[in-house]
């Protein structure tokens, strides 16, 4: 069990009488790209916030990188988080923002400096790195957000819509980066509405609907389960499993 990157046990979040997430059970191995799908309001962001210690669960438990999410100080060194709106400061330049995060995480100066330059170069941000973030486009902000989330090479990276606002070239760079990170045994918990990204990168996919995990498996398994056939698209499978909204039990696709 200690080998799992993410492990949740009946994780539940309730606001009043409304369930945002209901008895979520996940087991994700290290190095997995886990595509976390679901319609708007399904509970994806709440799940990510619980797993990143930002929101306290109502009941149930979870461990990330072997640490209970009740212990923020133990979990945070091992995770990186890109929320839907990148948490960056408009008053800083892109380079300052990244150096700031490196300083907060106490990364070795020379190593982190070189890593920042490499990632800026990779995301085509070197020319704009010394401009204040207030002048950045949505895509540039997204790139800075992603770089800061993986700068310290965490064991688990939670990425909420990482390709949002990116042009096709940048989106491809992002996909390649995610694939590279996964190759280096980083677990990527990837929430997105862009299903081809998950289809291409996802080792496993979980579909959340009304706070419940209604399907889980590899992309191929999901397509098979939704009776769309292996040739069908993930979109067809997603629509099929979320249309079936009355799943009483979360179950494996196969």
């Amino acid at each position: 069990m200690a080998d799992l990157a993410i492990e949740t046990d009946a994780l539940t979040k309730r606001y009043g009488n409304e369930y945002a997430v209901r008895e979520l059970d996940l087991e994700i191995d290290p190095g997995t790209v886990y595509g976390f799908l679901g319609p708007n309001g399904a509970g994806k962001t709440t799940t990510m916030r619980m797993l990143t210690t930002l929101t306290k669960p109502t009941s149930g438990s979870a461990r990330v990188a072997g640490h209970s999410i009740a212990e923020r100080d133990a979990v945070t060194p091992h995770i990186g988080y890109l929320p839907e709106e990148p948490p960056i400061y408009d008053e800083l330049t892109g380079r300052e923002q990244l150096e700031y995060v490196a300083g907060l995480r106490d990364l070795p100066r020379e190593e982190s400096g070189a890593r920042i330059e490499r990632l800026l170069e990779r995301f085509d941000l070197t020319g704009d790195a010394d401009k204040r973030i207030e002048a950045y486009s949505k895509g540039m902000r997204q790139k800075v957000g992603v770089i800061q989330a993986v700068l310290h090479e965490p064991a688990v990276a939670f990425l909420d819509e990482p390709t949002s606002g990116l042009d096709p070239r940048a989106a491809r760079t992002m996909r390649e980066t995610i694939a590279d990170l996964a190759d280096r045994e980083m677990t990527i918990f990837l929430s997105t509405h862009i299903l081809p990204v998950v289809d291409e990168l996802g080792d496993r996919i979980g579909v959340l609907h009304d706070g419940r995990l209604v399907a889980e498996g590899t992309p191929t398994e999901l397509k098979r389960r939704a009776e769309t056939g292996e040739e069908g698209s993930l979109e067809d499978a997603f629509l099929a499993v979320t249309d079936e909204g009355e799943y009483a039990e979360p179950e494996e696709a196969v």
């Binding site: 210690t53 930002l54 923020r72 988080y81 709106e85 948490p87 995060v101 907060l104």
Partner: peptide
């Protein structure tokens, strides 16, 4: 704006 990053990056003492 950076609160989610702060909370998941540094502890209270820092």
């Amino acid at each position: 704006r950076g609160l989610q990053m702060m909370l998941t990056t540094v502890g209270g003492r820092a």
